[in-house]
Simulated scan of single mutants.
Amino acid sequence: MALTSDTIPRAVLDAPVPVGTYERVTRVFDGPPERARAVADAGAETGFLDVTRRDGQQVVRQPTRYPEWIGGLVGVENKPDLERPGGLSRQLRHDASLGVLDYAVVATESHVTGAHLNRLPDAVGVWRVDFDRERPIRIVREPERLDAAGPGLEVLDEHAARTDVRPVSGAAKARQRRQIAERAHGKGWRTFGLPGCARASTGDGGVTLPYCEHFDRVVDPARECGTDCPGFADADPPAVALDAERERRTRWERDAGGRHRQAGLDQF
């Protein structure tokens, strides 16, 4: 849903601004009155908030409800060598106990043993990745859905005899989920670059992927392409229109076209 073509400040999204009904700005936004009014004005400038005065007080409302647009969050921890796990186990225990993500997965090039699986939380999935295979991803263990809606526990520190944790509310997790999703959404669409090679193309089916005619498969340009490749032939990268494809295949719009209002809110 397109709300505004501008970036809505995080302080505006995190505040309990009512939808349809007006509330005093100083009751909605934390901090001194000057800061509260500045945040409200910033939200109004984007078109997401209505700010006016009633009975000598500055009041604010949302004319449009912020949509629940997040489908699901999958966190993929890239760990090519499981024999050198580093802080992998702790990170995954943190992900599983906090539950901000819907699913957590480890992607590895290593041969996965039962000992490896036993060191990981049961809810974490494991993918074996080998780009030399026709189907490069083999699912060793399916991930289990985490409780992203309820409260969670954040792992702060681990000791030999205890683990320090902090309870995190469902509302705090929802804010973090939105921030993660917005960062991922804002990075763009298919952010990898296509290789400058005469044998590179975008594949078939109307989906832009780095397809290599020499290997007859999709490749990882950052790892597999370049002058060291036996099939490399210097050329300009294939011409693509990633913004147009992203707009065609997702709900993203290059220009949201200003503000939108929900019908029926004027009755409040």
Results as ranks from 00 to 15, higher is better:
residue 2 A to Y: 01
residue 7 T to W: 01
residue 12 V to D: 02
residue 12 V to A: 04
residue 21 T to C: 06
residue 22 Y to S: 06
residue 23 E to V: 12
residue 25 V to L: 02
residue 29 F to M: 07
residue 31 G to H: 11
residue 36 A to Q: 09
residue 39 V to E: 07
residue 47 G to Y: 03
residue 49 L to Y: 03
residue 50 D to Q: 05
residue 62 Q to C: 11
residue 63 P to K: 00
residue 69 W to P: 06
residue 76 V to S: 02
residue 80 P to F: 00
residue 87 G to A: 11
residue 88 L to N: 07
residue 94 H to S: 10
residue 94 H to C: 06
residue 95 D to S: 10
residue 102 D to M: 07
residue 103 Y to A: 13
residue 104 A to D: 07
residue 106 V to R: 00
residue 117 L to R: 07
residue 117 L to G: 05
residue 120 L to W: 03
residue 123 A to E: 15
residue 126 V to N: 02
residue 126 V to G: 03
residue 131 F to M: 11
residue 139 I to Q: 10
residue 147 D to L: 11
residue 150 G to V: 12
residue 155 V to S: 01
residue 157 D to C: 00
residue 157 D to W: 07
residue 157 D to I: 00
residue 159 H to N: 13
residue 165 V to P: 00
residue 166 R to H: 10
residue 166 R to Y: 09
residue 167 P to Y: 11
residue 169 S to E: 08
residue 171 A to Y: 06
residue 171 A to V: 13
residue 174 A to P: 05
residue 180 I to C: 02
residue 181 A to D: 02
residue 182 E to I: 14
residue 183 R to V: 14
residue 185 H to R: 14
residue 186 G to M: 08
residue 186 G to A: 12
residue 187 K to H: 13
residue 187 K to S: 13
residue 189 W to N: 07
residue 191 T to H: 03
residue 191 T to K: 06
residue 191 T to A: 00
residue 192 F to A: 05
residue 193 G to D: 14
residue 194 L to I: 08
residue 194 L to D: 04
residue 197 C to W: 02
residue 198 A to F: 07
residue 198 A to E: 13
residue 202 T to E: 11
residue 203 G to H: 05
residue 210 P to D: 08
residue 212 C to D: 12
residue 213 E to S: 13
residue 214 H to Q: 10
residue 219 V to W: 00
residue 220 D to K: 01
residue 224 E to C: 05
residue 227 T to W: 08
residue 229 C to D: 07
residue 230 P to L: 08
residue 236 D to K: 15
residue 239 A to R: 13
residue 243 D to A: 10
residue 244 A to Y: 01
residue 245 E to M: 08
residue 245 E to F: 01
residue 247 E to S: 09
residue 247 E to G: 01
residue 248 R to V: 08
residue 251 R to T: 15
residue 253 E to F: 02
residue 253 E to D: 13
residue 256 A to V: 09
residue 260 H to T: 15
residue 261 R to L: 15
residue 263 A to L: 14
residue 267 Q to C: 09
